[in-house]
Design a protein around this nucleic acid. Sequence first.
DNA 1: CTGAAAGCGCTAACAC
DNA 2: GTGTTAGCGCTTTCAG
Lengths: 392, 392
Amino acid sequence: MAKPPTVYDVATRAEVSIATVSRVFSSPDTVREATKARVLAAVHELGYVASGNARGLATRRTGVLGLFFPGLDAMDELRGRTDFLMHDVAAATDRDDGGRDTDAPSEPDSVSTPLPRATVIRDIPARTDTRALNLYLDEVLRGSELEAWLSGRVLLVGVGRGVTSGQTVLEMAGRVDGLIVLAGSATEEDLAQLARRIPIVVMAGPPRGDDFDHVSVSNEEGMGALTGHLLDDLGVTDIVYLAGSVESPDDHERWTGFRRALRERGITPPDEPWRRSDFTREGGRAAGRVLLAADRLPRAIVCANDQMALGVIDAARIAGVDVPGELIVTGFDGIDAGGLSTPRLTTVSQPMEALGRAAVQVLVRRLEDPERASMSVRLPVEVLLRESSEPA
Amino acid sequence: MAKPPTVYDVATRAEVSIATVSRVFSSPDTVREATKARVLAAVHELGYVASGNARGLATRRTGVLGLFFPGLDAMDELRGRTDFLMHDVAAATDRDDGGRDTDAPSEPDSVSTPLPRATVIRDIPARTDTRALNLYLDEVLRGSELEAWLSGRVLLVGVGRGVTSGQTVLEMAGRVDGLIVLAGSATEEDLAQLARRIPIVVMAGPPRGDDFDHVSVSNEEGMGALTGHLLDDLGVTDIVYLAGSVESPDDHERWTGFRRALRERGITPPDEPWRRSDFTREGGRAAGRVLLAADRLPRAIVCANDQMALGVIDAARIAGVDVPGELIVTGFDGIDAGGLSTPRLTTVSQPMEALGRAAVQVLVRRLEDPERASMSVRLPVEVLLRESSEPA
DNA sequence: CTGAAAGCGCTAACAC
DNA sequence: GTGTTAGCGCTTTCAG
C-alpha cells in the first residue's frame, strides 16, 4: 500500500489548488467544467479516495451512526480462534476445470493441517439453539442498516463483551454522529458521558426519563393481550409463568403485562413468576421437565420468550404430554423457529426490524434538530395465535 | 449538545498540556500517578470522549474494518418509510403499574394515527421467503463482528443499493483500515481504486488473480461430493440441475462441481443447466411445477441453493409427488429452514460464520504485514444427507 | 471561478 | 515526566 494520494497530490496533478479539489466533491457546480474534468481525471489516475477522518475532523460530522449491542455469544468458545487453511495465491494458480485436488498449494505460507474440502455427513435431526438473541439482533440490525442507508449514512456496529465493553462503546462514540444503544449494554455512567458528545437513542427496556430518546415495543401490552386471550377466549385460568433472566429489561415488562391481565379480571396474580430461567431453549427444556414431573399439570404455561417455550414443548414431547391438549404453551418474540415447530408456537411477535428502523429515524431526527424535546417511540406488537394454544 | 470537550479543555482543567492528556490514554504508565488522576478527573467532569477522526488523522489508522455487501432487499418496498408513532417523552410520564391505556400522550409532537399497542391475530401457516440472502449475510456478519472484536476493532457495515452503491463503498473506504467486499457487490473499477488506499479482501466468488486477498468456500467440491453421493451411493444418474442467477459468482462453481462429478464417472454432463431460476423459493416452486408437469420425472433434481430446493419440495407436495420416493431433491447452503422442512433437505452446508471470521483474519494479517503475498482461504463444506434424498 | 490560509482534535517526535 | 510544536488531510471563509 503506497501512501494513499491526498488532495494535495490531486491538486498538483490537476494543476489547481486543494480548495478546488475539495469543491469538486462538495459543490461541483461552482467549478468550471474544464477544471472539474482535469480534477476528476487526476482523481482517477491517482486512485484518490477522500479521508473520512480528515473530512470528519473539518466538518464535525461523519455520516456514521453507531449501533451498540451487548455480546451474548457463548463467551466460552469465543476465543476458539479457528485458524483457517490459508495460502499464498501466487502459489496456487490452477483454475477452472483444470486439475482439481491439487490440494496442498506449492508454497503453503501458513498451513495448518490441510482441511478436507468437503465432508459427507449423515445429519441427524438436531436443534440449533445458541443463536437466540442473535436472531433478534440480526433483524434489528437489518432494519437499522436499511434506514441508515435511506438517510445516506452507514452503520458502525459494535458489540460489548466483557470488560472491554465500556471501552468499545466510548471508541465508537468518538467516530459517529449518533449512537443507538440496546438497553443494558452499557453502564449508565458511560451513557451519561457519551450523551455529552453525541445524541443517544436507547433501544428496548423501560422508558427513560427525558435523558435520552427511546425506542421500544409494547412488551407489557403484548403479554397482557396474550394472557387475556387465554383467560377470556379459552377460559383458562390455571396458568404458570416462566420468566427469563432478571437483568433483561424486557422481562419485567412482560411479567407486568401478565399480572395486569389477571388482575384486570379479578384474579390475584402471583407475586413471583412460577420459575425463572435464562431465555434459552435448554433452559426451557429444564423448566419443562420440572413442570411435567409435578403431580399436577397447570392448564397453560406462559413463557417470557420463544426459545424457552420451544424448550418446554420439547420436554412435553419427550414426556408424551400433548400440546395444547394437556398443556398450552406460549412464547414471546416471534422468532422464525416458532412458526416452524410442531405444534407451531403461539407467541407475541415483535416488530424487530421496525424497531431498528425506528431507532435510526429517531436518531436522525435528533441530529437534524438537537433542540427538540426527547422522543419516545413504542411499537405495537401482534399476538400470533397458533397451534400450541389453540386446540384443533 | 454543547460543543464536545477536547483535549484542550481537559488539559486546561487539569492544568497540564494536551500532550499529557494524550499520554494518559496512549501510554498511561509514562505519566505520574498524581497527574494522571488529575487528568482523569477532568475527563470525567467534562465528559470527554476522544475524537476518532482526529485520532485517526494523526495516527493514520482507525481501528475500523469495513464490510460491504450487495443490497438484495426487495428494492420495491424499500422506500416504505414506515413512520412510527413518536411523541415527546416529557409529555408522557405515567409509568409502571399506573394508568395504562392512557394511549395518546398529551402532546403528540408528531403523531400519525395512534397505533394499537397489541393486536391479536390468528396466524395461518405461511412461508417467509424474502430473507434468503439476508440470512446468509447475517451469519457472515456475525462471524466478522466477532473476529473484529477479537482483534480489538469494530465493524463498519455498508450495503450497496442501486446507483449509490459505488459512492457508499468509496465513503466506507475513506474511514476504515481495510475492507471486506462480497464478490459482485462493487465494480472492478471501484475495487481497483480502493485497493490503492487500503487492503481489500474479496469474499466468495472465484479466486482472484493476485490482486486481492480472497476468502471463499469450496462450492465446487461441495457440489461435487453431493453429486457423487447421488451417483455412487444411491445409484441415481437421472438427474437434472436447477441453477441460480448467472450473476452469482458461486453459482458457476456449483454447476462446475456438478458437471465434474458426472464427468469423473464417465458420464457426459449436459452443457447447460436444465433450467435457471433466481435463488428464491418462489422461483423454485415455479421450476418445480414445470418439472412435475412433464411426462416423465427425473429421479433427482439438484438445486443450486436451498431456497429453490425448498420451493421444488413445495411444488412436489402440492402435486402429490413423494420426496424422496419419486423425486430426490437437494439444495446448497445449509440454511436453517432446510433442517426444519418436511422432509428435511439434503444440502451442502457452508460455514458462513467461519467465512466472516476468516475474512477478518485475513484482513488483519494483511494489515499487520502489507508486504506478504496475497492470500487465499478456501473453507471446507459439509454435505448434509437428510430425508429429501435418503429413502427411509 | 479559484487560491491562500486558518483551523478541526489528536499524536508523536523532540526538547526541557 | 511533561511541554512544545509540527503535522495528519480536508473544509471553509475571505480575498482576489
